[in-house]
């Protein structure tokens, strides 16, 4: 019984993670991962700075949406 609940919970978490990925919710985590992996010296942007920078760059680099 409890394994069934765990399976459902895992499935739901997996789906939520997938949905988050599609919407780009994991962008900051991926940025940190890249920052770590590329061994840069300066400190990474904070979460607040990162999201600010992200939307501000979209201002000068717009992407179309389809019809």
């Amino acid at each position: 019984m409890s394994t069934g609940i765990t399976a459902v919970a895992n499935g739901f978490r997996g789906f939520a993670r997938y949905l988050g990925g599609v919407m780009g919710a994991d962008a900051y985590a991926k940025y940190l991962e890249h920052h770590r992996a590329s061994g840069q010296q300066e400190a990474p942007l904070s979460e607040r700075e990162f999201w600010r920078d992200r939307t501000d760059r979209q201002d000068s680099n717009p992407q179309g949406r389809c019809c």
């Binding site: 939520a16 988050g20 919407m23 780009g24 919710a25 979460e47 607040r48 999201w51 600010r52 939307t55």
Partner: peptide
């Protein structure tokens, strides 16, 4: 998203 809880997209 900008001021209260940045990054909490979901």
């Amino acid at each position: 998203l900008r001021y209260l809880r940045p990054g909490k997209v979901m």
